[in-house]
Amino acid sequence: MSEDLAGRCTVVLDLDGVRDKAGLMDRVARALALPDWFGRNWDALADSLSDHTVWPAGAVERGLLIVVRGWQPYAEARPGEWRTAQDVLGEAVDRTAALAVVLALGGSS
């Protein structure tokens, strides 16, 4: 089975240089332009990914594709946190048909 990702609103989540959860949350908040009240914790991330009111303009109608790149050093430095991040992202995708998340392989440049 394949999913057509063409036409979705695409957001690049660049994790190059991120070494901890705080850095990850800052990058997510910046990439998705989350509101100031974003709590920067796993529950807040899950809620934000499922909350269409905080998605970029046009993403609700077209769908949202988050491309995560530069994630490998973070995954190696903090494997437990990375597993939790993957769980949160995966659960959000499972709950929200309009959301897709892909992990880019290779360098972040």
Rank of each mutant, 00 (worst) to 15 (best):
L64R: 05
D14L: 01
I66C: 04
V88G: 09
G17T: 10
A77V: 05
D47V: 13
T53A: 12
S2Y: 07
L32N: 06
I66T: 10
L64P: 07
L99F: 05
M1T: 14
K21Q: 12
R19P: 02
F38C: 09
V60M: 13
A44H: 13
V11K: 11
P56S: 00
G70Q: 08
I66M: 02
A29F: 02
R78L: 05
S109R: 11
L103F: 14
W37E: 15
G63R: 05
G106Q: 07
L24M: 07
S50Y: 00
L99R: 07
K21T: 07
G23Q: 09
D20E: 03
W37G: 14
L89D: 05
V93D: 04
A92M: 10
A75H: 09
G58E: 05
W71V: 00
Q72M: 03
A100P: 04
V11D: 02
A57H: 11
G7W: 13
S109K: 13
M25C: 07
E61V: 10
A29R: 15
A31S: 12
M25T: 01
S108H: 13
L89R: 13
W71H: 08
P35C: 04
L89F: 15
E81F: 05
D26P: 00
L45N: 01
V60A: 15
L49M: 09
A22G: 08
L105P: 10
A33W: 09
V101W: 01
A75W: 01
N41C: 06
F38T: 09
V68G: 00
L105I: 02
V68T: 03
S48I: 04
G90H: 01
D94N: 13
A31G: 00
G23S: 03
L65K: 08
G7P: 12
V68Y: 01
G106W: 05
A57K: 14
L13F: 00
A85S: 06
D47C: 08
A33I: 01
K21A: 14
V93W: 09
S109M: 13
E61H: 12
F38P: 01
D51K: 03
W55V: 08
G7K: 06
L45K: 05
D36W: 12
G90N: 09
A57Y: 06
K21C: 04
A100R: 14
S108N: 11
D4S: 15
G39L: 06
G70S: 02
G58K: 15
W55L: 01
S50Q: 13
R62K: 15
G107V: 12
E3T: 15
L99P: 01
V18P: 03
A97L: 15
G80E: 08
R69V: 00
L65E: 01
V54M: 11
D47A: 13
